[in-house]
Simulated assay, not measured.
Amino acid sequence: MTARVQSDPFDMAAELRDFGAGAGAVVTFTGIVRDEGGTLAALEIEHYPGMTERALSEFGQNAAARFGLSDWRIVHRHGRIPVGDPIMMVATAARHRRAAFEGAEFLMDWLKSRAPFWKRHVARDGATAWVEARPEDEDALSRW
Protein backbone atom coordinates (compact mmCIF):
# COMPACT_ATOMS: atom_id res chain seq x y z
CA MET A 1 0.00 0.00 0.00
CA THR A 2 1.86 3.00 -1.31
CA ALA A 3 1.46 6.55 -2.51
CA ARG A 4 4.24 8.13 -4.51
CA VAL A 5 4.83 11.44 -6.29
CA GLN A 6 7.60 11.54 -8.88
CA SER A 7 8.78 13.49 -11.90
CA ASP A 8 9.87 10.49 -13.97
CA PRO A 9 7.47 8.41 -16.05
CA PHE A 10 6.32 5.19 -14.39
CA ASP A 11 6.24 1.68 -15.79
CA MET A 12 2.72 0.27 -15.37
CA ALA A 13 3.88 -3.34 -15.76
CA ALA A 14 6.52 -2.87 -13.07
CA GLU A 15 4.02 -1.14 -10.79
CA LEU A 16 1.64 -4.10 -11.05
CA ARG A 17 4.24 -6.85 -10.67
CA ASP A 18 3.32 -8.63 -7.43
CA PHE A 19 0.56 -6.09 -6.76
CA GLY A 20 -2.53 -7.49 -5.04
CA ALA A 21 -1.17 -11.00 -4.59
CA GLY A 22 -3.96 -13.29 -3.42
CA ALA A 23 -6.75 -10.83 -4.27
CA GLY A 24 -9.77 -11.87 -6.30
CA ALA A 25 -9.82 -8.60 -8.25
CA VAL A 26 -7.36 -5.91 -9.31
CA VAL A 27 -8.55 -2.67 -10.91
CA THR A 28 -6.24 -0.11 -12.48
CA PHE A 29 -6.70 3.35 -13.92
CA THR A 30 -4.09 5.38 -15.75
CA GLY A 31 -4.64 9.05 -16.54
CA ILE A 32 -3.04 10.38 -19.72
CA VAL A 33 -2.40 14.05 -20.54
CA ARG A 34 -4.94 14.66 -23.29
CA ASP A 35 -4.73 17.20 -26.06
CA GLU A 36 -7.20 20.02 -25.61
CA GLY A 37 -8.41 20.49 -29.17
CA GLY A 38 -4.92 20.56 -30.65
CA THR A 39 -3.69 23.47 -28.54
CA LEU A 40 -2.07 21.79 -25.52
CA ALA A 41 1.64 20.96 -25.44
CA ALA A 42 1.94 19.85 -21.82
CA LEU A 43 0.72 20.11 -18.26
CA GLU A 44 2.90 21.49 -15.51
CA ILE A 45 2.09 19.98 -12.11
CA GLU A 46 3.25 21.53 -8.85
CA HIS A 47 2.97 20.12 -5.34
CA TYR A 48 4.34 20.49 -1.81
CA PRO A 49 6.65 17.52 -1.14
CA GLY A 50 5.75 15.67 2.03
CA MET A 51 2.30 17.23 2.35
CA THR A 52 1.10 15.81 -0.96
CA GLU A 53 2.38 12.29 -0.24
CA ARG A 54 0.71 12.36 3.20
CA ALA A 55 -2.60 13.40 1.65
CA LEU A 56 -2.43 10.65 -0.99
CA SER A 57 -1.59 8.09 1.67
CA GLU A 58 -4.58 9.20 3.74
CA PHE A 59 -6.84 8.84 0.66
CA GLY A 60 -5.53 5.31 0.13
CA GLN A 61 -5.94 4.33 3.78
CA ASN A 62 -9.51 5.67 3.79
CA ALA A 63 -10.33 3.68 0.65
CA ALA A 64 -8.83 0.51 2.14
CA ALA A 65 -10.90 0.85 5.30
CA ARG A 66 -14.10 1.78 3.50
CA PHE A 67 -14.01 -0.89 0.76
CA GLY A 68 -11.94 -3.64 2.36
CA LEU A 69 -9.06 -3.25 -0.06
CA SER A 70 -6.18 -5.66 0.45
CA ASP A 71 -3.81 -3.41 -1.49
CA TRP A 72 -3.75 0.00 -3.18
CA ARG A 73 -1.24 2.10 -5.03
CA ILE A 74 -1.24 5.72 -6.17
CA VAL A 75 1.51 7.12 -8.41
CA HIS A 76 1.25 10.74 -9.52
CA ARG A 77 3.76 12.70 -11.54
CA HIS A 78 4.84 16.32 -11.16
CA GLY A 79 6.77 18.72 -13.34
CA ARG A 80 6.24 19.20 -17.06
CA ILE A 81 4.35 16.29 -18.63
CA PRO A 82 3.78 16.31 -22.40
CA VAL A 83 0.54 15.40 -24.15
CA GLY A 84 0.18 11.63 -24.47
CA ASP A 85 2.25 10.80 -21.38
CA PRO A 86 0.79 9.11 -18.30
CA ILE A 87 0.20 11.57 -15.49
CA MET A 88 -1.03 9.23 -12.75
CA MET A 89 -2.23 5.76 -11.89
CA VAL A 90 -4.42 4.15 -9.28
CA ALA A 91 -4.51 0.43 -8.57
CA THR A 92 -6.77 -1.32 -6.07
CA ALA A 93 -6.99 -4.96 -5.02
CA ALA A 94 -9.76 -6.66 -3.07
CA ARG A 95 -11.35 -10.02 -2.52
CA HIS A 96 -14.26 -9.11 -4.81
CA ARG A 97 -14.52 -6.97 -7.96
CA ARG A 98 -17.15 -4.55 -6.65
CA ALA A 99 -14.88 -3.45 -3.79
CA ALA A 100 -11.89 -3.07 -6.14
CA PHE A 101 -13.90 -1.02 -8.66
CA GLU A 102 -15.55 1.17 -6.02
CA GLY A 103 -12.25 1.69 -4.23
CA ALA A 104 -10.63 2.83 -7.47
CA GLU A 105 -13.53 5.19 -8.31
CA PHE A 106 -13.48 6.60 -4.78
CA LEU A 107 -9.75 7.29 -5.05
CA MET A 108 -10.11 8.87 -8.49
CA ASP A 109 -12.90 11.19 -7.32
CA TRP A 110 -10.90 12.26 -4.26
CA LEU A 111 -7.68 12.69 -6.22
CA LYS A 112 -9.37 14.81 -8.87
CA SER A 113 -10.94 17.14 -6.31
CA ARG A 114 -8.84 17.10 -3.16
CA ALA A 115 -5.27 16.10 -3.96
CA PRO A 116 -2.92 19.04 -3.31
CA PHE A 117 -1.64 19.50 -6.86
CA TRP A 118 -1.70 22.66 -8.93
CA LYS A 119 -1.98 22.26 -12.70
CA ARG A 120 -1.09 24.67 -15.44
CA HIS A 121 -1.85 24.21 -19.14
CA VAL A 122 1.08 24.95 -21.45
CA ALA A 123 -0.20 25.72 -24.94
CA ARG A 124 1.72 24.96 -28.12
CA ASP A 125 2.25 28.69 -28.58
CA GLY A 126 3.86 28.93 -25.10
CA ALA A 127 0.91 30.56 -23.31
CA THR A 128 0.15 29.20 -19.84
CA ALA A 129 -3.02 29.15 -17.75
CA TRP A 130 -3.81 27.64 -14.36
CA VAL A 131 -6.44 24.88 -14.45
CA GLU A 132 -9.53 25.77 -12.44
CA ALA A 133 -11.52 23.24 -10.42
CA ARG A 134 -14.48 21.84 -12.35
CA PRO A 135 -17.94 21.67 -10.74
CA GLU A 136 -18.52 18.14 -12.08
CA ASP A 137 -15.41 16.91 -10.25
CA GLU A 138 -16.71 18.38 -7.02
CA ASP A 139 -20.16 16.89 -7.67
CA ALA A 140 -18.63 13.42 -8.02
CA LEU A 141 -17.64 13.52 -4.35
CA SER A 142 -21.27 13.75 -3.25
CA ARG A 143 -21.88 10.06 -3.97
CA TRP A 144 -19.31 9.05 -1.35
Rank of each mutant, 00 (worst) to 15 (best):
F106Q: 03
H78V: 15
W144R: 10
I45H: 01
I32P: 08
R4P: 00
A23Y: 00
G37C: 13
G37E: 14
H47M: 03
D11M: 06
A99Q: 14
E36D: 15
S142V: 14
V26T: 10
G126W: 11
V26R: 13
R95Q: 06
E36F: 09
S113W: 01
E102C: 04
S142N: 14
A115I: 01
E58S: 12
I74A: 01
R98P: 00
A123P: 04
R95S: 11
A127L: 07
G20I: 09
V5A: 10
R77F: 04
A129R: 13
P135T: 13
W130I: 09
H121G: 03
M89Q: 11
E53I: 00
A21W: 02
G84Q: 02
F10S: 02
A65V: 08
D139W: 12
W110C: 12
V131F: 08
E53Y: 00
I81K: 02
A3L: 06
W110V: 13
V122Y: 02
A127I: 02
A25L: 12
A99D: 15
Y48A: 09
A42R: 08
M51P: 05
M1E: 10
F59K: 06
M108Y: 06
T52K: 07
G24D: 09
I81G: 02
F106Y: 15
D109E: 14
G50H: 08
I74M: 12
P116L: 04
M89F: 03
G31N: 03
G84P: 01
G103D: 08
I81L: 11
W130R: 11
L40P: 00
F10A: 01
E132S: 12
A41I: 03
E44D: 13
Q61P: 03
A55N: 04
R98D: 12
V26N: 01
R77D: 04
I45K: 03
E46Y: 00
Q61Y: 02
D109I: 09
D35E: 08
V131C: 09
G22T: 10
E46C: 04
R134E: 15
W72Q: 06
L16A: 05
I74V: 12
A100Y: 11
A104D: 07
A21P: 01
R54G: 07
A42W: 05
L56F: 13
E136A: 13
L16M: 15
L40T: 05
R124N: 12
K112F: 04
A115F: 04
G126I: 13
A14L: 14
W118S: 10
A3F: 10
W72S: 02
I45Y: 12
A115V: 05
F106N: 02
G60S: 14
A64H: 00
D71R: 10
R34A: 15
R66N: 09
V33M: 08
R54K: 15
G22H: 00
E138D: 11
R73Y: 03
T52G: 07
W72G: 00
G20D: 10
K112V: 05
P116G: 06
G79L: 12
R134I: 09
K119N: 06
P116T: 03
F106E: 01
A14E: 15
G38C: 08
L56T: 01
A104T: 15
R98C: 04
T128A: 12
G103Q: 06
R34D: 14
F59T: 07
D8T: 07
W72P: 03
K119E: 05
R124E: 06
G24H: 10
M1L: 14
M108L: 15
R73F: 02
L107W: 08
T28P: 06
E132P: 09
D137M: 00
T52C: 09
